[in-house]
Protein backbone atom coordinates (compact mmCIF):
# COMPACT_ATOMS: atom_id res chain seq x y z
CA UNK A 1 0.00 0.00 0.00
CA UNK A 2 1.39 3.40 -0.99
CA UNK A 3 -1.21 6.10 -0.45
CA UNK A 4 -2.39 6.70 3.06
CA UNK A 5 -5.22 9.25 3.11
CA UNK A 6 -6.53 11.48 5.93
CA UNK A 7 -6.07 15.21 6.18
CA UNK A 8 -4.64 16.28 9.53
CA UNK A 9 -6.10 19.46 10.99
CA UNK A 10 -4.19 21.57 13.48
CA UNK A 11 -5.58 22.19 16.94
CA UNK A 12 -4.82 25.87 16.51
CA UNK A 13 -6.97 26.09 13.37
CA UNK A 14 -9.74 24.28 15.19
CA UNK A 15 -9.67 26.76 18.06
CA UNK A 16 -9.59 29.74 15.70
CA UNK A 17 -12.40 28.23 13.62
CA UNK A 18 -10.30 28.41 10.47
CA UNK A 19 -12.50 25.72 8.97
CA UNK A 20 -16.21 24.95 9.25
CA UNK A 21 -17.62 22.76 11.94
CA UNK A 22 -20.89 22.30 13.76
CA UNK A 23 -21.30 21.81 17.51
CA UNK A 24 -23.96 20.47 19.83
CA UNK A 25 -24.17 20.08 23.59
CA UNK A 26 -26.22 17.03 24.46
CA UNK A 27 -28.40 17.06 27.53
CA UNK A 28 -28.09 13.60 29.07
CA UNK A 29 -29.69 13.30 32.47
CA UNK A 30 -30.10 9.89 34.11
CA UNK A 31 -31.48 8.55 37.37
CA UNK A 32 -30.18 5.06 38.05
CA UNK A 33 -32.10 2.57 40.16
CA UNK A 34 -29.64 1.12 42.59
CA UNK A 35 -30.95 -2.44 42.40
CA UNK A 36 -31.42 -4.99 45.16
CA UNK A 37 -27.84 -5.74 46.11
CA UNK A 38 -26.37 -2.26 45.78
CA UNK A 39 -29.56 -0.86 47.34
CA UNK A 40 -28.83 -2.83 50.49
CA UNK A 41 -25.14 -1.85 50.28
CA UNK A 42 -26.12 1.83 50.19
CA UNK A 43 -28.50 1.41 53.15
CA UNK A 44 -25.56 -0.14 54.99
CA UNK A 45 -23.34 2.82 54.18
CA UNK A 46 -26.01 5.13 55.57
CA UNK A 47 -25.77 3.18 58.83
CA UNK A 48 -22.00 3.38 58.77
CA UNK A 49 -21.44 -0.24 57.74
CA UNK A 50 -19.83 -1.90 54.76
CA UNK A 51 -21.88 -4.92 53.68
CA UNK A 52 -20.76 -7.85 51.58
CA UNK A 53 -22.54 -10.99 50.40
CA UNK A 54 -21.67 -14.65 50.89
CA UNK A 55 -22.23 -17.22 48.14
CA UNK A 56 -24.09 -20.25 49.58
CA UNK A 57 -22.12 -22.56 47.31
CA UNK A 58 -18.49 -21.42 47.02
CA UNK A 59 -18.75 -19.43 50.27
CA UNK A 60 -16.67 -16.53 49.03
CA UNK A 61 -17.55 -13.20 50.59
CA UNK A 62 -17.87 -10.53 47.94
CA UNK A 63 -17.90 -6.75 47.98
CA UNK A 64 -19.47 -4.81 46.28
CA UNK A 65 -22.55 -7.03 46.85
CA UNK A 66 -24.47 -8.71 44.02
CA UNK A 67 -27.56 -10.95 44.08
CA UNK A 68 -25.85 -13.72 42.14
CA UNK A 69 -22.50 -15.48 42.27
CA UNK A 70 -21.05 -15.16 38.79
CA UNK A 71 -18.97 -18.32 39.33
CA UNK A 72 -21.65 -20.67 40.72
CA UNK A 73 -24.54 -18.81 39.08
CA UNK A 74 -26.82 -19.16 42.07
CA UNK A 75 -28.88 -16.60 43.95
CA UNK A 76 -27.00 -14.89 46.80
CA UNK A 77 -29.09 -13.51 49.65
CA UNK A 78 -26.82 -13.72 52.64
CA UNK A 79 -25.55 -10.24 53.56
CA UNK A 80 -22.57 -10.05 55.92
CA UNK A 81 -21.28 -7.02 57.77
CA UNK A 82 -17.61 -6.41 56.95
CA UNK A 83 -15.15 -4.21 58.80
CA UNK A 84 -14.55 -0.63 57.72
CA UNK A 85 -10.83 -1.30 57.53
CA UNK A 86 -8.66 -2.92 54.92
CA UNK A 87 -5.42 -2.72 53.01
CA UNK A 88 -4.37 -0.99 49.83
CA UNK A 89 -4.21 -3.44 46.93
CA UNK A 90 -3.10 -0.81 44.45
CA UNK A 91 -3.25 2.98 44.18
CA UNK A 92 -2.52 5.93 41.94
CA UNK A 93 -1.80 9.59 42.47
CA UNK A 94 -3.93 11.49 40.02
CA UNK A 95 -2.90 15.00 39.00
CA UNK A 96 -5.51 15.49 36.31
CA UNK A 97 -9.28 15.70 35.93
CA UNK A 98 -11.34 13.81 33.37
CA UNK A 99 -10.88 16.62 30.84
CA UNK A 100 -7.09 16.60 31.31
CA UNK A 101 -6.90 19.74 33.47
CA UNK A 102 -4.30 19.84 36.26
CA UNK A 103 -5.74 19.36 39.75
CA UNK A 104 -4.57 21.70 42.50
CA UNK A 105 -4.50 18.89 45.01
CA UNK A 106 -3.84 15.39 43.69
CA UNK A 107 -6.41 12.66 44.31
CA UNK A 108 -5.31 9.22 45.50
CA UNK A 109 -7.66 6.56 44.12
CA UNK A 110 -7.06 3.05 45.40
CA UNK A 111 -8.46 -0.45 45.37
CA UNK A 112 -8.94 -1.29 49.05
CA UNK A 113 -9.27 -4.94 50.09
CA UNK A 114 -11.94 -4.87 52.80
CA UNK A 115 -11.34 -6.82 56.03
CA UNK A 116 -13.91 -9.58 56.42
CA UNK A 117 -14.30 -10.14 52.65
CA UNK A 118 -12.50 -12.96 50.86
CA UNK A 119 -8.83 -12.17 50.17
CA UNK A 120 -8.40 -9.88 47.17
CA UNK A 121 -11.98 -8.53 47.28
CA UNK A 122 -11.79 -4.78 47.24
CA UNK A 123 -13.64 -1.61 46.34
CA UNK A 124 -12.57 1.56 44.59
CA UNK A 125 -12.25 4.56 46.90
CA UNK A 126 -10.01 7.49 47.75
CA UNK A 127 -7.14 7.78 50.23
CA UNK A 128 -6.50 10.97 52.20
CA UNK A 129 -4.88 12.41 55.38
CA UNK A 130 -1.53 11.18 54.10
CA UNK A 131 1.35 12.60 52.11
CA UNK A 132 1.02 11.04 48.62
CA UNK A 133 4.62 9.94 48.69
CA UNK A 134 4.03 7.85 51.82
CA UNK A 135 1.22 5.74 50.32
CA UNK A 136 2.24 2.12 49.79
CA UNK A 137 0.66 -1.06 48.47
CA UNK A 138 -0.24 -3.18 51.51
CA UNK A 139 -0.82 -0.13 53.75
CA UNK A 140 -3.59 -0.57 56.35
CA UNK A 141 -6.42 1.95 56.01
CA UNK A 142 -9.71 2.78 57.74
CA UNK A 143 -12.85 4.47 56.45
CA UNK A 144 -13.52 8.06 57.46
CA UNK A 145 -17.30 8.44 57.53
CA UNK A 146 -19.46 11.49 57.13
CA UNK A 147 -21.43 12.52 60.20
CA UNK A 148 -24.49 10.29 60.63
CA UNK A 149 -26.98 13.05 59.83
CA UNK A 150 -25.12 13.91 56.64
CA UNK A 151 -25.10 10.37 55.30
CA UNK A 152 -27.53 9.77 52.46
CA UNK A 153 -26.93 6.23 51.24
CA UNK A 154 -24.16 6.95 48.74
CA UNK A 155 -20.64 5.63 48.25
CA UNK A 156 -19.50 9.11 49.26
CA UNK A 157 -20.92 8.51 52.78
CA UNK A 158 -17.37 7.27 53.25
CA UNK A 159 -15.40 10.46 52.73
CA UNK A 160 -12.16 8.56 52.12
CA UNK A 161 -9.89 6.00 53.77
CA UNK A 162 -6.92 7.05 55.89
CA UNK A 163 -3.92 5.11 57.19
CA UNK A 164 -4.30 3.78 60.73
Amino acid sequence: MKNFFATPLRDEDFKKKNFCYETWIGNCFYAWDCGKAIGRYLEGLKEGKILGVKCPKCERIMVPPRIFCEWCFVLVEDFVELKDTGKINTFSISYISWDMKRLEKPQIPAVIEIDGASPGYGILHLISEVDPKDVKVGMRVKAVWKEEKEREGKITDIKYFRPY
Partner: peptide, 19 residues
Protein backbone atom coordinates in the same frame (compact mmCIF):
# COMPACT_ATOMS: atom_id res chain seq x y z
CA UNK B 1 -23.51 4.11 41.69
CA UNK B 2 -20.42 2.70 43.40
CA UNK B 3 -17.61 4.37 41.43
CA UNK B 4 -18.61 7.41 39.40
CA UNK B 5 -19.55 9.56 42.44
CA UNK B 6 -15.84 9.36 43.43
CA UNK B 7 -14.94 11.49 40.39
CA UNK B 8 -12.80 9.06 38.41
CA UNK B 9 -11.00 9.65 35.15
CA UNK B 10 -10.09 7.00 32.60
CA UNK B 11 -6.41 6.97 33.50
CA UNK B 12 -7.20 5.68 37.00
CA UNK B 13 -7.76 2.12 35.85
CA UNK B 14 -4.51 2.06 33.92
CA UNK B 15 -2.55 3.64 36.74
CA UNK B 16 -4.02 1.19 39.27
CA UNK B 17 -3.24 -1.76 37.02
CA UNK B 18 0.28 -0.54 36.19
CA UNK B 19 1.03 0.02 39.88
Amino acid sequence: TTERPLGPNLLWIFALEMQ
